[in-house]
């Protein structure tokens, strides 16, 4: 690495990064304590970041700071740009209700935590109505494709195939009435199953390539950054 000072913070950053990669890849040989330690380290670091992120980006700036009046910076003469909004005190209600979660730690009063868990489940259910319909509607309208496109035979064939796959896969999950052996539904669902296999194959290929991209990036890091940084030790 040109321009990287030995034992500087950047050097240690690269050195530790490579060490971490080696520790994780050591799992390929067999499960070992070296891998376990770094796996736990990753969980610890991730947990800390996941805990702090919502506090930094939401809890403090949007709730606690205005509630405590700390979002108002005084002018040089000691007056404030705007008065404290008493409506911020209303934040205490959801915060107090949310604190009921902690009763889950008390066997006697755990039912109080169930109130807030139930409330959250209800909110999740209420939001999912909107979420599902908002997500489904554009896909549903896009699925109504013209089977004959004027002047484009290829496009027409593509659309026919699209609808064919959609309907056959639908038929695989259609259990509302009894299927007669060798009936249309049985054949259609067999085709649907085959189409799904093709779809899973394509998805599988895309997933492998995404993982491979990560692997290549790590190998590039090891070869282009870590090894030159390490070799500075005996140069």
């Amino acid at each position: 690495m040109i321009g990287l000072e030995l034992f500087s913070l950047q050097w240690f950053e690269i050195f530790c990064g490579g060490f971490c990669v080696l520790a994780i890849f050591s799992f390929l040989a067999k499960e070992n304590p070296f891998y376990r330690i770094f796996e736990h380290l990753f969980i610890g670091i991730s947990a800390a970041i996941l805990i702090m992120e919502p506090i930094r980006t939401f809890l403090w700036p949007q709730a606690l700071k205005p509630l405590l009046g700390m979002d108002r910076i005084p002018f040089p003469d000691g007056t404030y740009p705007e008065p404290y909004a008493m409506s911020y005190l209303l934040f205490l209600v959801p915060m107090g209700f949310g604190l009921l979660y902690y009763f889950i730690l008390s066997p006697r009063h755990s039912w109080l935590a169930q109130l807030v868990i139930g409330f959250s489940l209800g909110v999740g259910a209420g939001l999912s109505f909107k979420g599902i319909i908002v997500e489904m509607t554009p896909q549903l309208t896009d699925s109504f494709r013209p089977l004959y496109v004027v002047g484009s035979f290829g496009e027409s064939l593509n659309n026919i195939f699209f609808i064919f796959v959609l309907l056959t896969v639908f038929s695989y999950f259609f259990f509302s009435f009894k299927r007669s052996p060798n009936g249309l539904m049985v054949k259609s669902s067999w085709i649907g199953r085959t189409m799904m296999m093709g779809c899973f194959g394509a998805f599988f290929g895309a997933t492998i390539m995404a993982r491979m991209a990560l692997l290549v990036e790590r190998l590039q890091f090891m070869i282009a950054q870590w090894w030159p940084a390490l070799s500075q030790l005996w140069r």
């Binding site: 770094f38 990753f42 670091i45 692997l215 990036e217």
Partner: peptide, 25 residues
């Protein structure tokens, strides 16, 4: 903070997910 993020968190996360490439193959 940057040291921990770039020296531990990012490489550990990437290595962990790229490890799956071997198992998928």
């Amino acid at each position: 903070g940057n040291f921990v993020f770039n020296g531990f968190f990012t490489p550990l996360g990437s290595a962990m997910f790229s490890l799956l490439a071997f198992y998928i193959v």
